[in-house]
Simulated assay, not measured.
Amino acid sequence: MVLRLLVCLSFFYFSSASHADSSSLKISVGDSLAIAVYNETDLSLKVRVDNSGVVNFPLIGQVPVLNLTPKQLAKNLEERYDDGYLVAPSVTVSIERYRPFYIHGEVKAPGVYEFDQKLTVEQAIAIAGGLSERASSSKWFIARPSEKKPLPVNKESPVLPGDIITINSSFF
């Protein structure tokens, strides 16, 4: 009985851990951010991260935002605003819209699609209209900027913002 419980719990942990948690996703080029400074509407803003990876904030100027989680950026901004501008500032940062993911190869509608939380390769294929008749059932890959080479994936593999999914063709 205890063994069954442990197996069930470990399955639940590993299946839920495979999906990206929004608090752990890092800010990258193409993400749209909403920054709110409590009781300071003039300092709050919505911005899309461009190729420079720097956002210009009221009073404190340019701040690099790439590769930070929203929580890390909020803490950074609080420290900067607390340095002579505001008393005990409270900043919240959220990613309103993530950079898209890409899917190409043997799908019916290859292209660029909007990312959504807890997206799997199977769901991405469905968004792209499903597999074509020539699609391989196992030669699927994801290219990520953080990886040196494409990773082999299956239908349960998580998709992250900016991923490039490749569905190869089968020989038959």
Rank of each mutant, 00 (worst) to 15 (best):
P89I: 05
R144C: 14
V7T: 10
I60F: 04
T166W: 03
N154E: 09
L86Y: 08
N56H: 11
R4Q: 10
Y102K: 03
V93C: 04
I103A: 07
L151K: 13
K26P: 00
S18C: 06
A128N: 04
S22L: 12
G53M: 04
S157M: 09
A74F: 07
V121G: 00
E122C: 00
S136R: 05
P161Q: 09
S94V: 14
E96R: 12
K118R: 15
V47S: 03
L131N: 08
I27F: 11
L66T: 08
E133V: 12
S94N: 11
V29H: 02
N76T: 15
S138Y: 13
A126G: 10
S136N: 12
S136H: 11
L77I: 09
K46L: 03
Y81G: 07
L3S: 13
I95A: 03
E156I: 15
P100M: 05
N168M: 13
V55S: 01
V65L: 06
K46I: 08
E40G: 01
L6N: 04
D31Y: 12
R97W: 01
Y85M: 06
V2M: 13
L59Y: 10
E106Q: 12
D21Y: 11
V65M: 01
E133Q: 15
P150Q: 09
K108G: 01
A135S: 10
V65G: 03
S23D: 14
N56Q: 13
G111H: 01
V87S: 08
L77W: 13
P70L: 05
A74K: 10
V65R: 04
L119D: 08
V37T: 10
I95E: 04
V65N: 04
R134P: 03
A124E: 01
F172M: 12
Q123G: 04
V7I: 15
T69M: 06
K26Y: 06
A135T: 03
S157P: 01
D82K: 10
L45V: 05
R97T: 11
G84A: 12
K71M: 10
S169M: 08
G162K: 09
G105M: 02
S169L: 05
V55G: 00
S157E: 03
A74V: 07
E79Q: 13
S15Y: 15
I125K: 01
Q123M: 14
S44G: 11
K148L: 13
Y85A: 07
L66Q: 04
F14D: 02
K46N: 12
S146K: 15
Q123I: 02
N39C: 03
K139L: 14
Q117P: 13
